[in-house]
Amino acid sequence: MEQLVGLLQSVLGLTPRQGWTWLFAGAFILVLNAFAVGPFAQLDPAWVAIAALAAIFGGSILLVSLGAYFVGKATSGSEKRQAVRERENEWGHVNQEALRNLEVLSPAEQAALAWIVQSGQKRFRTDFFFNLEGNLIAKRIVLGPIGHTNDVYEVIDAVWDIRDQLKERYKAIQLKDEPPWSPYGQVGRYLPR
């Protein structure tokens, strides 16, 4: 349908503004003729037919333009919904991957995740390079750096949603006052949620 409407518009090369012009001109002449106003009262029937055709032509242009508008809106809405579905599927896959990766964490990674979960802050900031040997980020359990920063990180939603289970799982891990990834004893600063 979109191709048909586009073809009609491109072949005719007419815009809605031109459609309004043709419609109003033809309708104006027909109304003046019908009410016998001035010189339009004595119009030849051929001119009345031409005015009617002009009005019909203008109306046709407007209908095609209206069709193009609705087809464009429908197509745009469909593409947006498809993009949203694709993004949701992608994030669903990333979240599932993060949950599967929880089972293969090293003791150092478990300690780091336990510290993050115990802190109660999903999004956190640290002044030093947060790598944990790169594994929590590589395993997509922690995302970051977020945005245009180089020091803000966030725990992925699926992992954060089970933080109570993780607290229970990692309760045997002895946590210190400083994060386990701090090589210099600096404590990461946490942003309010």
Rank of each mutant, 00 (worst) to 15 (best):
A138Q: 14
H148G: 15
V64P: 02
G188V: 05
I137A: 02
D151H: 02
I156K: 04
A111K: 15
R125Q: 15
W47N: 00
Q186E: 07
F128K: 08
A68H: 07
L30H: 03
W91A: 02
G147C: 04
L175E: 01
G72P: 08
G13V: 11
R189G: 05
Y170H: 06
L8S: 06
P45N: 05
Y153D: 00
I116N: 00
V104T: 12
V11Y: 03
F40A: 13
L99W: 01
V94I: 13
L8A: 14
A83Q: 07
E90K: 15
V84M: 04
Q82H: 11
E97M: 14
E86V: 08
L30C: 06
W160T: 14
Q165V: 12
G185A: 06
V64S: 02
V84G: 08
G26P: 11
A55N: 09
V37H: 08
E2I: 06
R163V: 13
E88I: 14
F70I: 10
V152I: 14
V142Q: 10
L132R: 08
R169L: 08
L66V: 01
I156F: 00
A49W: 07
Q9E: 15
E109V: 08
I137F: 01
I137S: 06
W181V: 11
S119Y: 06
R123P: 12
K167I: 12
V31G: 15
P39Q: 10
A36T: 11
K176L: 07
V187G: 14
L99E: 11
F128V: 08
L14Q: 13
D151I: 10
I56N: 00
R125V: 03
R193Y: 10
L132N: 11
A27N: 06
L66A: 11
I116G: 02
F129H: 09
L66S: 10
N135I: 05
R193E: 15
V37G: 08
R125F: 02
I29T: 07
K171L: 04
W47R: 03
P192R: 09
W22M: 12
I137V: 15
L136G: 09
G92F: 09
